[in-house]
Amino acid sequence: MTLTRLMTSFATLRPRIEALTRGRVGCSATSEDIVQDTWIRLSNVRHDDAIDNHAAFTMQAAKNAAIGHFRKQQRRNEIDAEVNELLSTSVDEISPERIVMGRDMLRAVDKALQTMPERSRRIFLMNRVNGVSHREIARQLGISDEAVYYHIRRVVERLAELRDSNG
């Protein structure tokens, strides 16, 4: 069994595949993923000989890989929308009374934050105020995702204790 013909076809068509995917996704990193995915799909093909038109087969594999990526992206967007929905509050839940309460609490929270370990505080603020994802924080600081979670969780726990002790 030889895969050389399909692989040769891939090598020849690679610039075309790259152009096609880049045109569609408009992002070279994603495009590279799709090209790699195409290669993986092709290398999994067992019976090279049964294929008539290697170029057409290769391009179809690239299209399938691109569709796979779009689907994945779509699922990602759906999940993110759902999470957003879960974490946001509808407007009618916020009463003026609650806003005043919030201000007092906020002052206490700000004060408590100042006493927390610098690194934990910083990671918490990056995530909560700047909206940086755990993974991105982990990458920037050179620590693990779990460590990022742990820092934020520790800060939240301490602030929640503060809230609960204030009644």
Partner: peptide, 10 residues
């Protein structure tokens, strides 16, 4: 509520 904390340390 915590979204409104003082992020000036950052």
């Amino acid at each position: 509520l915590l979204q409104n904390v003082d992020g000036s340390g950052l």
